Computed example of a mutant assay.
Amino acid sequence: MIDVLPDPGYDPAAYRVEPMTLTRLLDDGDRVDLGGRVLTVLHLPGHTPGSIALLEERAGILYSGDIIYEGALIDNLPNSDVAAYRRSMEFLVDLDVSLVHPGHGESFDRARLRQLAGTYLRRTAVSVADKESRHSIIRDVPPKRETSRLTRSPGRLLAFSDGVFAIAVTLLVLEIQPPHDFGRLLRGLGALWPSYLAYTLSFLLIGQVWVNHHVMFDRVRHVDRAVLFLNTLLLMVIAFLPFSTSLLADALRAEQGLRASVVVYGGTLWTAAALFNIVWAHLRRAKLLDPGLRPFGARAIARRFALALVWIGSGILVGAFVPIAGVAIIAAFLPAYYLPIRGEYGEQDDTAD
């Protein structure tokens, strides 16, 4: 297989591994900076307890080592653990990479990665179930259960959320009813300006919420039951926005009840912002975030979400006395929150030591 020597006069018989000094142990989420290339350490046990892979996020490349490759995967070594191997494979199925360089054999793409991982999960599902069944019969006790909290991929949560966001923005236009007097169509269309204003403001605000929802969940590795519940509450508030928008438009058109309508409209947005903060705080506390997001980035996102409470709260407070000014403050919230958050893609804090 080797047909070229490293250098002239190279003697394979004289080759030896030079001793090295251990300086530290790598842990899951550690980052190795090679100067222009940053590799994130992924702890993927199963083949051995300490099996790792290296993820080059910016390039979408995974160096998988011995955890996955073409051919029979070895999970019968003295220290191998099939249950741990399965958890590692469940993680790899959802890993977003474009190319995998394994420790053995040819490289392959994400589709093949998912295929190999899925094949292993299907193959071992029967053996794991059979092993637990035999253990239960012999011991006359239920099979041992995992004590760790159940976690899930965020894929289905995001798909459901995107559907709710899409429906919410679609319902907004239903509030705009065409004029009935076609003899004065232009005047009738002009009289609908409150509906246009409320529609534009709400559409852009829901779009902004959708953008920041992705900012949040793009950095999430797993979700638990608490995240599913909290996200459901957030979507319930988003689905309420078409009603708040209609209320605001009708109040502007009638020139009555403006204060109350602005408070209801702003209160709906403030509740959504509060739930954003609660979800993000739980994700950080429960360690469900992707290790590629550094502490600086996590704090930057938390500050952006917290500022929304103050900003929208100010709009509500002002709107209770001067409704148009309150709407203007809430509208000013739009351009600031469409801007990217420094550190959200894993950038380092330049001011850090």
Rank of each mutant, 00 (worst) to 15 (best):
P143A: 13
T40N: 09
S314C: 01
L248N: 06
G326R: 05
A273C: 11
A125P: 00
A272Q: 06
G190L: 11
L99V: 04
E146T: 09
D290K: 09
L248A: 06
R285A: 10
P194E: 09
L192N: 10
R134S: 12
I206N: 08
D75I: 02
D130H: 08
L113N: 14
D290H: 04
H101S: 08
V128S: 07
S64Y: 07
Y85K: 06
G105A: 11
V327G: 03
A272W: 03
A59D: 05
N212W: 03
G188H: 12
R16D: 12
I68F: 00
I138H: 13
P102C: 04
Q348D: 09
I52L: 09
R342H: 09
V310C: 04
G65D: 04
D30V: 00
V237W: 07
T151Y: 04
V93S: 06
F240P: 00
P295N: 06
E132N: 12
L205V: 08
M89E: 00
H180F: 06
S261H: 05
Y85C: 01
Q177P: 00
N277M: 11
L34V: 04
A168H: 10
S246C: 07
K287S: 13
P8W: 06
M1L: 12
Y85R: 07
V126T: 13
V173G: 10
R284F: 02
S88H: 06
V264I: 07
G118S: 05
T200W: 07
F296A: 08
L307D: 12
A166F: 12
I138A: 15
F91R: 13
V169W: 02
G319T: 03
L185W: 05
V279A: 01
A281Q: 12
L55W: 10
A272K: 09
S202H: 02
